[in-house]
């Protein structure tokens, strides 16, 4: 009994001494996008092994979740850096300002392509963004201008006569995913605005325009396959009739099993994403809390490692992982801004 109560006291004492421990932090705390996670972790590992600092801790919270944590305030209990697969929104920036996170340094790290792929056993799809929109939107234009009908298409041939006569079956990420947001914005909206009257709507009624262009059908043709891109790849290999939507790095790793469809005539390849000709690609960022740079050891070093040529350069170790580097001048500009900790103005 004595030992039990002793243990209990010790445990409670330990629980309350936590505050003391949290007062200083000797490792960099990073949160944010699951798309940037594979790249940030590689940099963190290199940094941890080659410097005298500890390896940064990286949580994969999604872009939105990461910015929310990041903007919650200044102090060691809040993260120092957040990764994002999209740019920070004005509302998020304002929230940051409101919570005392004044100076934020934005670092763009490169590009990521979103691939629409299928099994190698089936012929390669040649899609356009309009095809993707018509096949996957919840509502599509009817015969008359201005009329919307529930998506009637069940096979690709109905969408576009040049496509094969196969049932529409697309495996993709759920709404919580940044990849899904980017897919809706780049592929769906890109196809959606090819229809003139919808394009005209953008200026008049932005909300309705977004609702038409970004809403994905829920009748079973688009299958939410979870955030796990590996799972989508495995399902594609097993089902030659299905298409899948996921990050370019997964396509690259599994090139022996699956092939990327061309979008608007351009195949998802390293070079076509780098020069911007592949339409479904997006920039990736990370944001640094300037107030933490001098109080948490290692932030400067981590930024320097990330923005070094051996990491994000054309032949750097991040390009081996599937990150598409920025052009040289752009890299130089962002590396300089990052080194000077130039705060973002919005």
């Amino acid at each position: 009994m004595k030992t039990t109560s002793l243990l209990l006291t010790a445990a409670i004492a330990a629980a309350f001494s936590a505050n003391v421990n949290a007062a200083g932090r000797d490792y960099v705390s990073i949160v944010g996008s699951s798309t940037v996670y594979p790249f940030a972790t590689v940099v963190a590992e290199h940094f941890g092994k080659t410097s005298e600092y500890k390896t940064p801790k990286i949580e994969s919270t999604g872009s939105g979740g990461g910015l929310k944590l990041f903007c919650a305030g200044v102090g060691v209990e809040h993260p120092d850096i957040t990764n994002a697969s999209r740019r920070i929104k004005k509302s998020e920036y304002d929230q940051c300002q409101g919570n005392g996170v004044k100076d934020i340094v934005e670092v763009k790290i490169g590009y990521d392509g979103i691939a629409v792929a299928n099994s190698k056993e089936a012929p390669r799809f040649e899609l356009t963004r309009k095809d993707l929109f018509l096949a996957l939107a919840k509502q599509v234009p009817g015969e008359k201008e201005g009329e919307l009908i529930d998506n009637p298409y069940t096979t690709w041939k109905q969408v576009n006569a040049s496509l094969p006569d196969i049932k529409i079956e697309v495996l993709g990420p759920p709404p919580t995913s940044g990849t899904r947001d980017a897919f809706a914005e780049l592929a769906m909206e890109g196809g959606c605005k090819k229809i003139d009257w919808i394009h005209d709507m953008k200026k008049k009624d932005k909300k309705a325009y977004k609702a038409i262009c970004h809403t994905i059908r829920e009748d079973g043709a688009y299958i939410e396959a979870g955030e796990n891109d590996n799972l989508i790849v495995q399902k594609l290999a097993a089902n030659p009739n299905a298409l899948g939507v996921f990050g370019f790095s997964f396509l690259e790793e599994n090139a022996d099993k699956i092939q990327g469809s061309t979008v608007d005539g351009i195949a998802p390849e390293f070079d076509s994403i780098a020069d911007g000709s592949y339409p479904v690609s997006r920039p990736l960022f990370f944001y640094v809390k300037k107030a933490h740079v001098d109080s948490v050891p290692g932030i400067r070093g981590y930024i320097a490692e990330f923005t070094s040529e051996k990491a994000w350069g054309d032949e750097g170790y991040l390009s081996e992982r599937g990150l598409i580097p920025m052009p040289k001048e752009e890299r130089a500009k962002f590396a300089k801004d990052a080194a000077d900790l130039t705060p973002l103005a919005m």
Binding site: A14, A18, N21, Y27, G48, T55, K57, I58, E59
Partner: peptide
Amino acid sequence: IGMVAFIVDIPGGVFDP
């Protein structure tokens, strides 16, 4: 509570990530 994270260093105590 943030335990789903990339952590390289072996934790040395109950307060290490």
